[in-house]
């Protein structure tokens, strides 16, 4: 069922956007959100996307998350053209390769931390025991193993985002997409979350794509891409992927 997306032997970038545009609506009401994006992300990179609101960074993230497709241009994930996949294939692609972290946490209410983390495994058809083990391992990684039986209402903001991160990494995804993951947190919790994401990027080799408007948070990334008016305004490379320091 999973689309045939095998690791690319030619060492292509993990993600490549080529001349991607996105237009919403038609006629006079049409809105050009992306006006031609060219971007490459290597496996293991930690990329921060910055830009004012309306600059197209969220639209771009939706396309990178396979939730949306470009109007024109190509989005290659591991060399496969995602714009040519149908809805089901993109679902399966998300299930297999992607993990999502949202600004608003987006955990299921009245559902324990453990059950929330198990959810992606349910859709992968993992047996009960393995679901439990993998979810516990993920919760352990974010330091919340002891909170497994708590529902979102009983957890603090920082803890909620950790549970959400555990849910995103429980399937060992290639890419973690984080949309303003610290937007709802105070600076102390924000830094904890950023350290967690950095650790996951360094230790587990997960490629992290993060949208943020806080320069302090973007500084944790290896690369910062600045969006401006539907185009890439500039790329800052802070450090090489896998390099130590910072």
């Amino acid at each position: 069922m999973t689309p045939d997306v095998t690791p690319d032997p030619l060492n292509q970038p993990l993600i490549a956007l080529r001349g991607v545009t996105k237009r919403y609506g038609v006629g006079a009401a049409a809105f050009q959100a992306l006006k031609g994006i060219d971007l490459e992300v290597a496996a293991g990179d930690f990329l921060a996307v910055m830009g004012p609101s309306g600059s197209g960074k969220s639209t771009c993230m939706n396309i990178l998350g396979c939730l949306d497709v470009p109007t024109t241009g190509a989005f290659l994930f591991k060399g496969v053209n995602v714009e040519g996949l149908d809805r089901v294939q993109r679902s399966l692609l998300r299930r297999r390769y992607l993990g999502f972290v949202f600004q608003g946490f987006n955990l299921l209410a009245r559902t324990t931390a453990l059950e929330n983390v198990e959810l992606p495994l349910v859709y992968r058809g993992e047996p009960r025991k393995r679901r439990h083990d993998l979810a516990m391992a993920a919760l352990d990684k974010v330091g919340l193993a002891d909170w497994r039986d708590h529902t979102p209402a009983e957890l603090s903001g920082g803890q909620l985002q950790r549970v959400a991160i555990a849910r995103a990494i429980v399937t060992h995804p290639d890419v973690l997409l984080a949309d303003e993951p610290t937007g709802n947190l105070d600076s102390e919790r924000s830094i904890e979350i950023m350290q967690l994401l950095t650790d996951l990027n360094r230790a587990s080799g997960i490629t992290v794509l993060m949208v943020t408007h806080e320069a302090e948070m973007a500084a944790f990334a290896n690369t910062i891409v600045h969006f401006k008016d539907g185009r890439v305004g500039g790329v800052e490379t802070l450090r090489r992927p896998g390099a130590d320091g910072a």
Binding site: L67, R94, F100, P120, Y123, T171
Partner: peptide, 14 residues
Amino acid sequence: REIGIRLAIGATAD
């Protein structure tokens, strides 16, 4: 929202 979450983490429409 719940449906959105499920779809995002890889549930198919079916």
